[in-house]
């Protein structure tokens, strides 16, 4: 119902559906794998925030493709970070190099480009670091601070990446096994108090993003969130992946076409658990 209201929507990107192969698949701590997938058309068209849908099996169970934010590009390949949560992600993380995979993308909206000398606060919860990594790749000169909230130190291997070498990193773990013990939003609140202005880009669990959006609103900082929902078609046809819209008590946005990246003020956070 609420179409084309997101100024971030990259309507120019041609979408592609490819049958291709895995170039690299590496475990990177915790329950995550970093996959490189050969997809030159998608890599060329993708912007930070966009996602792909992936299927790496031929049968009917699991059935639907699985959505992943693009974590970056590497030549003709796309990088995705996959956390093992169910049958589909276990199959994908177990793929051998050279294995076949179907991939559709780039789908959805992108994060805004930062203005010159604009500070950028990137707030990642766990595997939500994926699209923010792509943002850093595409904005190498941006003044970025990365707030990374992990469950424990086993999830830090993802930071072992030259892309993060020159980034100001603020680290928290829930169990205190690395960085500051607690939630990433506590560190963010401290930094926001010290800062005059910054754009906040975030991806992670919904309660974290809700807290980040509230902090940003209090400080009057622009905030963009990457929303995750159950998703079927990924291209705006099925109307399944809805996010409650602000200013319309019963209205919805669609994570696949209005998002996944949305300005945080577009969302009615009171209806998100």
């Amino acid at each position: 119902m609420t179409e084309s209201i997101n100024p971030l929507y990259n309507t120019e990107a041609m979408k592609h559906s490819l049958r291709t192969t895995i170039v690299d698949n590496t475990a990177c701590g915790g329950q995550w794998n970093r996959l490189e997938i050969e997809a030159p058309e998608i890599a060329a068209a993708a912007g930070p925030g966009a996602f792909v849908q992936v299927r790496a099996w031929t049968g009917i169970s699991p059935l639907l493709r699985r959505p992943f934010s693009i974590a970056g590009t590497c030549g003709d390949s796309l990088i995705i970070l996959v956390k093992k949560v169910g049958t589909g992600t276990r199959i994908i993380t177990a793929l051998d190099v050279g294995a076949e995979i179907e991939i559709t993308g780039p789908l959805g909206t992108n994060f805004s480009c930062p203005g010159p000398e604009q500070s950028v606060f990137l707030v990642a919860g766990g595997v939500g670091i994926a699209p923010l990594r792509f943002f850093i790749e595409r904005n190498p000169d941006a003044d970025c601070t990365l707030f990374f909230g992990a469950r424990d130190s086993s999830e830090l291997a993802v930071l072992d990446d030259e892309l993060f070498e020159n980034i100001n990193l603020k680290l928290t773990t829930e169990d205190g096994s690395a960085g500051v013990k607690g939630l990433v939003t506590a560190l963010l609140a401290e930094e926001m108090e010290k800062s005059d202005s910054a754009i906040v880009l975030t991806c992670g669990p919904a309660p974290m993003m809700k807290a980040v959006a509230e902090l940003a609103a209090m400080c009057d900082f622009r905030c963009e969130v990457s929303m995750e929902t159950y998703m079927c078609c990924g291209i705006g046809a099925c109307m399944g992946c809805v996010v409650p819209a602000a200013g319309d008590a019963s209205g919805y946005l669609h994570a696949c076409t209005d998002g996944p990246v949305m300005d945080s003020t577009m969302i009615d956070w009171s209806r998100i658990k």
């Binding site: 119902m1 009917i60 169970s61 699991p62 059935l63 639907l64 929902t229 159950y230 998703m231 079927c232 099925c238 109307m239 399944g240 992946c241 809805v242 996010v243 409650p244 319309d248 019963s250 209205g251 919805y252 209806r271």
Partner: peptide, 18 residues
């Protein structure tokens, strides 16, 4: 029509609910 509250879809064995 705005439609139903989420979640609106879920995968099931060899199928899906909407």
């Amino acid at each position: 029509r705005a439609g139903n509250p989420p979640p609106r879809t879920i995968e099931t064995p060899a199928g899906m609910l909407n």
